[in-house]
Amino acid sequence: MGELGVDHFLFLSAALFIIGMMGVLTRRNLLIIFMCVELMTNAVNLSLVAFGWGLNSLDGQAFAVFIVAVAAAEAAVGLAIIMALSRRQRTVDVDALRSLRD
């Protein structure tokens, strides 16, 4: 309570990251797993900006800008992979995609 500090944002970031992690661990739809990965990326962004805000530094925001750019590229490639999988394997269920293991 009291003053708004870095800890508030860090707790929010941790909560979002863990929710995203639980989504990755429990869901089977590849698209939802992808969205949860984006959520985890955003949680990391939030903690970076929070540390930069607490330390009066802009480096955290610069890192977050780079993370956003890389996440955009990752989204393009990842969604293209999902589309290719759907076209080739006829499924986006991660339990059914086991051709590398068998």
Binding site: A75, A76, S86, V92
Partner: peptide
């Protein structure tokens, strides 16, 4: 604006029978 719209596009392109 970009990533989520892309996700929605792919959701529409993926055959709904493929979704678990």
């Amino acid at each position: 604006g970009a990533i989520l719209v892309l996700v929605l596009f792919v959701l529409m392109l993926v055959n709904p029978d493929d979704l678990p």
